[in-house]
Design a protein around this nucleic acid. Sequence first.
DNA 1: TATTGTTATACTCTATAACTATA
DNA 2: TATAGTTATAGAGTATAACAATA
Lengths: 141, 141
Amino acid sequence: MQKTIAEQGSDLRMAVFRLSRRLRAQKADDGMSDGQFAVLAALYVDGAHTLTGLAERERVSAPSMNRTVNCLQDSGYVERSADPDDGRKTNISLTDAGTSIVSETVTKRDAWLTARVKDLPKEDRGVLARAVELMEEIVSH
Amino acid sequence: MQKTIAEQGSDLRMAVFRLSRRLRAQKADDGMSDGQFAVLAALYVDGAHTLTGLAERERVSAPSMNRTVNCLQDSGYVERSADPDDGRKTNISLTDAGTSIVSETVTKRDAWLTARVKDLPKEDRGVLARAVELMEEIVSH
DNA sequence: TATTGTTATACTCTATAACTATA
DNA sequence: TATAGTTATAGAGTATAACAATA
């Protein structure tokens, strides 16, 4: 019984959503929402951002991002500093505590997945490695 | 250059997150939330459910599911009927309109991904199909 | 004037607690 | 008593509109 390409696409979508949901559930700080963690991860990967920059990157409104940043600031994970060149801008960056929580969460998320990948036959790990390349290709198109 | 298993896990996590984000951005544009659509899809795949059954399946509280079902009922996509054997239960099932909207939405949501899968060589589609099985296995563990 | 950040306000989705009907 | 469904109410997270400060 051969599946159609449309069915293969549908299967891939469902598998990716399920695995993504499961991975996202592995968090280091239970009080932090996905949106909050996404902001910390963006700052971790690409350094300081303005509020508008973060809002555009995460595709939420500026007031919504302002609220998220306020929460992270209250938790001590980010800090605001005035931009020396443009008085309207505020640079938002990770504190040491913010950097730590990102590393911890990434490690924890990877630990769960790595434990499951480790138990697969070598051949299956090869399939996943190639699938990763294909998914990257699909996303970048 | 051989990657470690931990690096493979990390690569897989990032690829899944990116593809998931990209797929979610291909929104259905029909005023229906993800939660509402998930309920229709569950009824479509597995037939009628009770309210509690739906709540457990989607991992939300019963009141939350009750509200979702109320919205879907108001939209004419599902209907409630008394269970003949147990007066406490209500069976929730798709209407004809509900069945139609599921097919339409699935087609629309998958169109983007299917178009990209279609352009891959046959071997690569085989890799993705096997990767889907592996991801399902990983999630169910 | 345009842009950046912020406050005010409202809507959606979620949860817990409490109530009703039935087993 | 226990279970299924529902209602009441509250807490996140989101959005648009409006405002202040700066370019």
